[in-house]
Structures are given as structure tokens and as C-alpha cells.
Amino acid sequence: MPVAGGVTINDVVLRDGLQDEPVVVAVPDRVAIAAALAAAGVRAIEAASFVNPARVPQMAGAEELFAALPRDGSVRYSALALNARGVTRAVAAGADEIVLVVSAGQGHSLANAGRGVEDVLAGFRDVVAGHPQATFTGGISTAFTCPFDGEIAPRRLLGVARGLAGMGVARIVLADTLGTTAPERIARTLAMIRPALPGVEFGLHLHDARGQALDTVDAALELGVTRFDAAAGGYGGCPFAPGAHGNLATERLVAHLHSLGVRTGVGEGALADAVALVKECLARGAPLA
């Protein structure tokens, strides 16, 4: 299994996890969760999304959150953005990395971003060119299966990935947003797309509707993929993707990788403490109006 250098786990509970819960977690609690994940050895954390809080109220206070995050240089804090305004806010807040999200499915793009795929990509071209100092990652939602369009053809996904790579984005994370795509199909798609874009590092963002996410991880490891998104506690979903299930739980992913002898840098005991903290913070969150 070609993972001699270990893998990178990007924990997304503060963004993808909390955005799908029926409560708003206070900013100090979100900061505490970030600190607990960092103490467990997680070195990449997706901390927030800079989106309209009227649409996703759970992500309100993103600027306040970034101003309070513990910073010692050991953790890269990323933020999600859907448009130019979101990128501008993320840059001003000091995000280490900005995730530009575009859907492979046209139907999901219209529901999630309010625009078609090509319009989203066109807007991001100008944004990336206008922020040469920023580090961008591409995130492709519904990369394999769309709740509106059905199965995504690999050639369509490759076209979207090429659009991001053409802007100079050197890391692209492919999301199985519904968590229903068979591991074999994800592996076949990866085997086709990665050689077509050799200058791009590909990662996976896995939801786990059918208990097959770890099988997908195994198949991806065999292909040389070494970056995975996961969420502490398995929380998450997508408010704009009907049928989306929770994320692959970070603690399950870490335990599985350790059982294979794959290094993660994450301590399972401290990670369990972080998961417990997430549950506590959700329990005292303010219910959505």
C-alpha cells in the first residue's frame, strides 16, 4: 500500500459537521473544538465557511472564529467559499487555505450556489487571479453522484477538475456528497482522472450512507491517495443535497488507518476527548429559530 509517508486527515466537523445540525454552536465553543482537535494531532482543520448566514446560520461569526483560533504554526486552518465575496472575507480573516467549492452536478450547483457550474468556475477564475497571495484548494461536490442529476460521468468530472487546475489550483478534493457511490466506481474514476492531471494532488471527502466509506479509503490508498476529509463524531451532510448522510467519522478513519499500520499523527485517546467535546457543544447550542 503506497503510503510510506503517512496520510493527512483534514477534519471538517467545524464546517461540514456543524452546518447540518439544528443548532448554532457559539464561537468560543467552536474555538475550543479546534484546540481539542489540534491537541489530538490533527494538522488540517476546515474551520468555517464564509457564506451568507441567512442561508447557513450555523456558520455565522466566521471572522470572529478565525480571529480567536489557536495559532502556533502547527495547524493549517482552511475555510470554504462559494463566491468572490466569500473569498474576500476569508482572505481578510487570515484563512491559511481557501476551499473553492464547485459542483460536478448542474442541479446541485443551482441548489447550492444559485448558479450553474460554468458560471461558478468563471467567477472563481477572476477571484484566484485577484488574490495571488492566497492558497486555494478546489472542492468538487457531487463528484460521483448528484441528487438531482444522478451518476456523474468521469469525463464531466474531469472537465470540472481541469477548470480548477487551469486557474492554478494544485489540490482538488472530490466529494461523495451523498455517500452512496460504490467504492469500485470511485476507484475507477480516480484511476482515470489522476493521470490526466499529474500536477494536481487529489483527496477525497467521504460521506458514509452505506457503511462503505472505509472500503473507499482502502481503494484510494492503493491508488496513492493520501489526503482524506473526515469529521469528528461523523457529523455533517449538505443542506442543499437531499439525502446526504453524515461524514466519515475522523475517529473511525484514524483507527482504521492505524490498524493498517498507516501513520496519521493523531492520538486516538485525545481524539476521543475532542469528539466528546463536540457532542457537549452541540448539546448546549442555540436552536435555530
Rank of each mutant, 00 (worst) to 15 (best):
L14V: 00
L282C: 01
V217M: 11
P22K: 01
R263K: 10
G166M: 08
A36N: 00
L157M: 12
Q19D: 09
E222V: 13
E64H: 01
E46A: 02
G236Q: 05
E151I: 14
V23I: 07
G123Y: 04
G114T: 09
D72G: 15
H245L: 07
P53Q: 08
L82P: 01
P242H: 08
R188N: 11
F50Q: 04
H205T: 05
D72R: 11
L80D: 00
A67G: 13
L174E: 04
S109V: 05
L248T: 00
L82K: 06
H108K: 12
P242N: 06
L14S: 01
F66C: 03
V225R: 03
L69W: 04
V13D: 01
A79Y: 07
E222W: 11
M167W: 03
A67D: 14
A60R: 15
V200W: 12
R125Y: 11
V120W: 13
F66T: 03
P70E: 11
G94S: 10
A84F: 06
P70C: 11
L164P: 04
V278T: 05
V24H: 07
L158Q: 12
G94Q: 09
L206D: 10
D149H: 11
A241H: 10
A170E: 15
V120Q: 13
A289M: 02
P147M: 07
V51A: 12
I193A: 13
A272V: 07
G166I: 05
A191M: 10
A191P: 09
G179F: 05
D11A: 00
L178S: 00
P2F: 10
A272N: 08
D215T: 11
A219G: 09
L14H: 01
G163V: 07
P132S: 15
G17W: 01
A47D: 04
M192F: 12
T88D: 15
V75F: 07
L14R: 00
L288S: 01
A161N: 05
D72I: 09
G265I: 00
R115K: 15
A175I: 02
D16H: 04
L206F: 05
D20E: 14
